[in-house]
Amino acid sequence: MWKWTQINHLKLIILDCESLNQKYIDFPYQHLLGVDVLKIESLDIDKNIDLDALIANFLIMAQCQSYEAIVISGDMTWLKKVMSYRIGTLFVGHLQQKDLKYMPDFVVDSIDSLVDVLSEKDKGYSGEVLTFENKKGSLLSCQTEIVSDDGKKYLTELYFGGRYYPEKHQYLLDDALSYMILKFKHEYVDIIDIFFDEAIMDIRKKEKIDTLTYIPPKPQDIEKKRFQRFLSLKLERNAQDGLMLKDFLSCQCDFSQKGNDLAERRKTVKGVFRVNGDVKGKNIILIDDVFSSGSTMIEAMKTLYEAGANKVIALAIAVSQMTESPFAYQKLVCSYCQEPMELMYYRKTHKLLFGCPHYYSHPDQKSMMSLRLGIFCLKKRNRLYDGSYDMMNREDC
């Protein structure tokens, strides 16, 4: 999904010409009449370019706001720089694992897929779309190479449903998927179950899958009887076909990755998993909630391959993101008690809403906002939307 952009109000497209095939450069001129197009040459990001001034000049020239603009580029280095300025980003090409921590709003690999994005036929990453709109989106995929201890190499796929912003990250304020993932660490969340069920079905359309497994809990999690989130999943559509999660992996020792760099993370998880049961010749989907550095997931995949698995495909709800913005959010404020309104999970309806810490004790539900209304009001308050939104009453904001 577009993090900032209102695509139906698109006024400006910035094209990074040196990184794009000519057909992508020509497309906006031929099919997006009424939208300003600015062509730029590839910028040397190692030089001290004033990106603030550059983007501000682009917006002034087009007489538009940042939420009315997008950048299209085939250069992830350039897009990473742009992402923090609340402008929509669209990458042309195939995302590599090293770029996952700066996922753009959309990734396309053809003119047809670009058309689907700009016409809103493609709503975005499946986890984000499902959580926000309860509609179907698309999985992001990339390839990675697994190398076993004996040097054998396995080329395999990684699939993801969107972007995850950790606790205390400023984008968590309005990110429904991240909030649901945080809840899933402590309790069953139906929307997460639906995501995994649909994502596995989508992968099965491309690959023959024999079984499913998951990243196992650590010994201390079992000892302290912490919530076993993956065991709570029902995966109803796959279960009807006899495909259910199995505990093929166990974790042999406790470990922490907090504060570790990539090399330390790989060293920490080396050899921590053991295979239970026979996986020889099987095609397996391995699931986890969040893909951070990838060291844990890749070590688990390597363990399965070394035990004889034919193919291991990774599936995570989201990838942990590093993108930050120099602009601070202004929070919504409750009209009753003037306390900040936060995104929260309403257990009675199993839905996300915006409310203050005391919303349940206020005399009526005007101190609560639906997810859609709250995000609209939050972005309007921060001047990321204009005043028009036909589904909302402006007085509610």
Rank of each mutant, 00 (worst) to 15 (best):
I14Q: 01
I14F: 01
L15R: 01
L15N: 02
L15A: 02
D16N: 10
D16V: 06
D16A: 08
D16C: 08
D16E: 11
D16S: 08
C17G: 07
C17L: 10
E18M: 10
S19W: 01
L20P: 00
Q22C: 07
K23I: 12
K23W: 04
Y24D: 04
Y24M: 07
I25N: 00
D26H: 11
F27Q: 00
F27Y: 14
F27K: 03
F27M: 03
Y29C: 07
Q30S: 14
H31R: 13
L32Y: 13
L33A: 12
V35F: 08
V35P: 04
D36C: 12
D36G: 05
D36H: 15
V37K: 05
V37H: 05
L38T: 09
K39M: 12
S42F: 07
S42N: 13
S42G: 15
L43Y: 07
D44N: 15
I45P: 04
I45T: 15
D46Q: 14
D46A: 12
D46I: 13
D46M: 13
D46H: 15
K47F: 12
N48F: 11
N48A: 14
N48C: 08
I49F: 09
I49W: 08
D50Q: 12
D50G: 10
D50L: 11
L51K: 06
L51I: 15
D52F: 11
A53R: 15
A53P: 01
A53W: 10
L54C: 08
L54F: 09
I55E: 01
I55H: 02
I55D: 01
I55L: 11
I55K: 01
A56L: 08
A56F: 06
A56E: 11
N57K: 15
N57H: 13
F58N: 02
L59F: 04
I60C: 06
M61L: 14
M61D: 13
M61E: 14
Q63N: 15
Q63T: 14
Q63L: 11
C64L: 02
S66V: 03
S66Q: 08
S66K: 08
Y67P: 04
Y67Q: 05
Y67L: 09
E68R: 06
E68M: 09
E68T: 06
E68K: 05
I70K: 03
I70S: 00
I70M: 04
V71M: 03
V71W: 00
V71T: 02
I72K: 00
I72F: 05
I72A: 00
S73A: 14
S73T: 08
G74N: 05
G74F: 06
D75I: 10
D75T: 09
D75A: 09
D75R: 08
M76A: 07
M76N: 03
T77I: 13
T77L: 13
W78M: 11
L79Q: 01
K80P: 03
V82I: 15
V82M: 12
M83V: 02
M83L: 10
R86Q: 15
R86S: 14
I87P: 00
I87K: 02
G88D: 01
G88I: 04
G88A: 06
T89N: 04
L90S: 00
L90F: 03
F91Q: 00
V92F: 00
V92N: 03
G93L: 01
G93E: 04
G93D: 04
G93I: 05
L95D: 02
L95G: 01
L95Q: 05
Q96L: 15
K98N: 09
D99H: 12
D99V: 09
L100K: 02
K101W: 00
K101T: 09
K101C: 05
K101F: 00
K101N: 10
